[in-house]
Nucleic acid binder design. Sequence first.
DNA 1: GTCTATACCCGGATAGAC
DNA 2: GTCTATCCGGGTATAGAC
Lengths: 217, 217
Amino acid sequence: MSGKRLQPRKEPQQVRGELTRQRILAAAARVFAELGYAAGTTNRIAERARVSIGSLYQYYPNKDAILVALAARHLDAGAETLRRHRETAGPPETLYGALRELVHVAVQNHLDDPQLLRVLADQAPRSAELLEQVARYEEERVASVRELLERSPETRVSNVDMAARIVVNTVELLVHKLIAGPEPLDLPAFEDELTAMLTRYATAGSERSSGLGRPVG
Amino acid sequence: MSGKRLQPRKEPQQVRGELTRQRILAAAARVFAELGYAAGTTNRIAERARVSIGSLYQYYPNKDAILVALAARHLDAGAETLRRHRETAGPPETLYGALRELVHVAVQNHLDDPQLLRVLADQAPRSAELLEQVARYEEERVASVRELLERSPETRVSNVDMAARIVVNTVELLVHKLIAGPEPLDLPAFEDELTAMLTRYATAGSERSSGLGRPVG
DNA sequence: GTCTATACCCGGATAGAC
DNA sequence: GTCTATCCGGGTATAGAC
């Protein structure tokens, strides 16, 4: 009973804790991006976060959990990117517009830390949980594109299922690879060309019928 | 000077040696394909090859060398696939034919061991040597496609450089991912659709002008 | 609640017998 | 020329002091 300590310590347990948690995550992002998953050791992450290895393990039970947290953060960012885009651009009206949105959002979503994203996609340990989560997400997008193709009167593809898989994966993979690649990329040109390819594919050359900005060629 | 051994031992040094060498390589292919590079330990490879770990290191100086050998073997197979294809089909005459060949050869080249190919492409430790070798190979193919696009009168793309990069990478990445994927793939349909996408892109919907087998749509 | 020190494990690679 | 046994390094994770 000696206390004269009202308003004790604000709430450092919560705030500072969350802060160092973020520091660790940020450090992990950079270390994984630079060295890959295998060479990105927990010691190195702790060092980069200027936190001892012991502290790191107080926030994350193991190395894998850090990667999962990073992945979750990326998925959230993806949804957020789409939301913000629609906030100004509105929902797409034409097939061309939808495909352009698909491409644009993917590009935006990979601009911040392409290297890390590549590690996440390529070297992530295929834990059943994470694997399933990603698969479900992809399935979702494929279904959405398939629906888009079916609904749109401009569509000319013969095999809608296959087309949807091809479109989604093409965007995803190309963006991953080309943005993360060593040589700098002319982003607007890239978006234009990729969107053009997808649109011409989906409409079999009848892209005049939609609200195409520039009738390429 | 005691010998009564003419025709001594045939030539077991050469023949049996090369044989176990191949056994090790085959075992490594399966182990890497199943477990990935990190979890595919040399011990496990030796075990699978029914060879002791000591013997393994007599044939390969380190783990990485095994991976490089595997990669080299794949590149050779690629060239061979192309050669055999042209042997019966002849060189492509039209833009459509060239793109179809590009797709078909890529698919054929990934049919034998897709899992392994994925490990090779994704998890290979980025040793400068291997990295450069792959980059050069890709640059080669991009240049070839660019030339193809420039030469062909049917071409309608606005940005030839970008288009060539997109085409080559799309084929490479899609084939990797979709063939290695869990769900079975309708190969002929896949080849048809992918070729259609690339052709429509390159010719901007004027694919009627070439020797197109089926005017899709 | 953050640190240091270290236990524990496992993989790559080598030594040396046969 | 193939084996067994082992070294050595390093990475994850924990114990326990402060």
